[in-house]
Simulated scan of single mutants.
Amino acid sequence: MPVMERAKETALTKFTSLVYLYTGLGVAFWLLSAFALAKNQAFTMPILTWGMQHRIIFTVLEIAIPIGLISLCQSLAQRSYFLTFICYLAFLASFALMGVPIFYAYSAKSILQAISMTAVAFVVMAGYGYVTRTDLMSWNKVLMTGLIAVIIVSILNLVLFKSSIAMLIINAVIMILFLGFIAFDSQNLKRIYHQYQGTNLGAIALVASISLVLDFINLLLSVLSIFGNNN
């Protein structure tokens, strides 16, 4: 392999390693933030109670605020690592409220088992996505269509049907979808690196890890919903 090619491969490896490091730290920060909020019931219970009373508004806010912060992170990434990092932490903190109920609903043993299962599945699918020679770009449309369909069905079930069996099926579909997203987003790291090489790659790595953090969290929540407390 020519020296130039080896240098490019080394730089790409460093970039992807940094992304996976940020992913692991991001998931850990999200879990710790959710745990801290769960312990502070005086602060979180009024919010969750309001959310149960206004489910549609609460769901929209839970989605809109993190998406807004993600967009802000993307706009800051090529200007300032520090501001991108602060925005990244704000995104994780805003998204942590979604994780609070798991500390009320599941035992510590179930949560640790689910994290272990999710981590193994993540490593397998991320490894596949990164090393496969198959172009996974064609998965994007299918995965996004499936995700939109699941969100619509979930809202309908939450508001109208309130079926536990339907929720179980939805979580199984979500689990499959996000296994696909992990592989897709891992392969996409190569495209991101080639698109932004020469710029502030530390901040770009932070932003690139957001997708993988979301993949891990959504997979974890689905695993807990299906297997939590051996129920």
Rank of each mutant, 00 (worst) to 15 (best):
V3W: 03
V3C: 04
A7P: 10
E9G: 04
E9H: 02
A11Q: 12
L12N: 08
K14R: 12
F15N: 00
S17F: 10
S17E: 08
Y22T: 03
L25Q: 01
L25D: 00
L25K: 02
G26I: 06
G26Q: 05
V27F: 02
V27Y: 00
W30A: 01
L31D: 01
L32P: 04
F43N: 05
P46R: 07
I47F: 08
M52P: 00
H54G: 05
I57E: 13
I57L: 14
T59M: 14
V60G: 02
L61F: 12
A64M: 15
I65M: 06
I67H: 10
L69V: 11
L69F: 12
I70A: 09
C73I: 12
C73N: 12
R79C: 04
S80N: 12
F82T: 12
L83N: 04
T84L: 07
L92S: 08
A93M: 09
S94R: 10
F95A: 05
F95L: 11
G99Q: 01
P101S: 11
I102E: 03
Y104R: 06
Y106Q: 01
K109T: 10
I111Y: 07
I111R: 01
I115Q: 09
A119M: 06
V120R: 01
V123R: 05
V124A: 13
M125H: 04
A126W: 06
A126L: 00
A126T: 10
G127E: 04
G127D: 04
G127L: 04
Y128S: 03
G129L: 07
Y130N: 11
R133H: 13
R133I: 05
T134E: 15
T134D: 12
D135G: 07
S138R: 08
L143G: 06
M144W: 13
M144T: 14
G146W: 01
I148G: 14
I148W: 15
N157W: 11
L158K: 00
V159Q: 15
V159H: 13
L160A: 13
K162M: 09
S163K: 00
S164E: 14
L168G: 13
I170D: 00
N171P: 07
N171L: 00
F178K: 00
L179F: 06
F181Q: 00
F181D: 08
F184Y: 15
F184T: 07
F184A: 02
D185I: 09
Q187R: 06
L189H: 05
K190A: 10
K190C: 10
R191S: 15
R191G: 11
R191Y: 13
I192M: 05
H194G: 01
Q195G: 01
Q197V: 06
G202V: 11
I204T: 02
I204H: 09
I204K: 08
A205N: 02
L206C: 07
V207R: 05
V207L: 10
A208W: 08
A208L: 03
I210V: 14
L212F: 06
V213N: 01
L214M: 14
L221I: 10
S222M: 03
L224G: 05
I226M: 05
N229Q: 11
N231K: 14
N231C: 10
